[in-house]
Amino acid sequence: MNLTLRVWRQKGPQDKGRMVSYQVTDVSPDMSFLEMLDMLNERLTLEGEEPVAFDHDCREGICGACSMVINGTAHGPQKLTTTCQLHMRTFSDGDTIDIEPWRAKAFPVIKDLVVNRGAFDKIIQAGGFISAPTGSAPEAHSTPVPKADADEAFDAATCIACGACVAACPNGSGMLFTAAKITHLGLLPQGQPERDSRVVNMLAAHDEAGFGGCTNAGECTAVCPKGIPLTTIGRLNRDFIKASGKR
């Protein structure tokens, strides 16, 4: 396959950045999207042009590092798939592919396609945990958890914090990420003592970081590689209303 890539190149945080076109030839349909970029980078290096910087690590869809908006869609055209698991057989010979970084004020660009997602860590710091210092834990079987709750908590806990939800949201909101953690911890008996403070503090940290507000547009869940459902946002809202009522 031969393709035209238009890639966002930006030297550093202060640089304005622009889309640059590259031709790539002899792309195998069995390549992953990132392997196709590896190939481009090998060529650029030999031609004396700095390779395209992009975040990636596990390349098996679980670490959440990879982060590209491909033809206007976060993580590209395949549903429930991270960029690293997207394969070139999804594209056709002669295609033009636009590749851009996540765009959000809370995720400033560091270089090319690499952004800083530290804002997500800040949201977790505000309350995305259960306070259980090492050694203080009771016997694991002392608190049974209904299987349905455990399963639903798990579904929310599969979030990989890639940030696609923010990238896709017309409001640049990080609500799905925040709600996934609220849902995971709020459904478990261990998470109850801090439930009220958690939602209030995490939402405050979310807003503080410069994310937009949620309008339930649903773009986030459509691109989420882990399929985190929109209902988690309902849980967040309900917890927030309850917590606000108690204050």
Binding site: M19, D98, R103, A217, A222
Partner: peptide, 16 residues
């Protein structure tokens, strides 16, 4: 304010 730089490739609507 949350998205000061727009996408060059207009996003495809996936929600509604």
């Amino acid at each position: 304010a949350a998205r000061p730089v727009k996408y060059a490739h207009r996003a495809k609507v996936q929600g509604s």
